[in-house]
Simulated assay, not measured.
Amino acid sequence: MATTKDGRERAEWPLTIQEMAQRSGFSEPTLRYYEKVGLLGAVPRDDSSGHRRYDTPLAERVGALACLRSSGMSVADMRRYLALLDEGDRAAAAEQRDLFARHADRLAAEIERLRVRQAYLRAKADMWDARHRGDAAAETHAVEQVERALQDF
């Protein structure tokens, strides 16, 4: 049992938008946006208050979207993933594989770009450290590292 703000116990399901935001890591505006763009479908509303209520299946869908989003997947790709789920595992398996493989390839390219940036920043830090210490040989070496890193940009 969960408790309300005033300390009363209430059933854990369905969740309010605040509870869903807390569980998923999404903000309330993001949850509303995902509903608006069709990633969640129509979120049921409480009859008396009209507030959104997230049941177990919807919470599981939000959880899956949270995993996809944390991997950097775009809304368009999340939408495609959900559409493929509706086609069934076997029918859409090859397309799901391709969707995730493309995303993994994009992440690999992004990681490589970050490694190049990191090498550049490390070399610049080494250069300034050598300059601070008055070590001309180390500074020359660091400048060469900076130039190599710039070639990779």
Rank of each mutant, 00 (worst) to 15 (best):
A123P: 04
R79T: 13
L107N: 05
I111F: 03
E87K: 12
M73N: 06
T140C: 04
D105N: 10
D129H: 12
D46F: 00
R113S: 14
R115S: 10
A136R: 14
P44A: 07
S27E: 04
Y81I: 14
A94F: 00
A142Y: 03
V75Q: 03
Q118E: 12
A42N: 09
L58R: 08
S27D: 02
A119D: 13
D126N: 13
L114Y: 06
R32P: 03
R113H: 12
G41A: 07
Q96W: 01
V75S: 07
R131F: 03
S27Y: 01
G63N: 09
V37I: 15
K124Q: 07
A109D: 14
L65D: 01
P44R: 03
K36W: 00
R79Q: 15
A94I: 09
V116T: 14
A108R: 11
L114W: 09
A93E: 06
L85W: 01
E139M: 11
P29W: 00
H132E: 13
A142V: 10
E95D: 15
L39Q: 06
L65T: 10
A64N: 10
K124L: 11
E28K: 14
K124D: 04
E60T: 14
E139H: 09
D89G: 15
L31M: 03
V43F: 00
M127A: 12
T30C: 03
A125C: 10
A66W: 01
S70W: 06
L84E: 09
K36T: 12
S27N: 02
E139T: 11
V62M: 04
G63C: 06
L121S: 07
V43T: 10
A125F: 01
R45K: 09
R80T: 15
A130D: 05
L121I: 09
A93K: 05
S71V: 13
G38W: 01
H132Y: 08
A136Y: 00
V75E: 05
R97K: 11
S24R: 05
L114S: 08
E110L: 08
Y54G: 10
A109T: 11
E95I: 13
S48H: 02
P44T: 11
Y120S: 12
A137G: 05
A94W: 00
P57L: 06
R133N: 09
R102A: 13
V146I: 15
G25Q: 04
G25Y: 05
A138S: 12
Q118W: 06
P57F: 04
K36E: 13
W128E: 15
H103G: 08
E112T: 12
G50E: 00
Y33S: 08
A104P: 02
L68Q: 03
R69D: 03
R79W: 01
S70A: 15
E110C: 07
R122Q: 14
E35D: 05
L85K: 12
K36C: 06
A125I: 08
A138Q: 12
E144Y: 02
T30Y: 01
G88K: 01
V37R: 02
L39G: 03
A83K: 07
E95N: 07
H132K: 12
R122L: 13
A64V: 15
E112G: 11
L82V: 13
H51M: 01
V116G: 11
E112H: 10
D55F: 02
M78H: 06
A125L: 14
D126Q: 13
P29H: 01
S27L: 08
T56L: 09
R69K: 14
C67A: 13
R97M: 09
G72T: 10
V146G: 09
E144S: 12
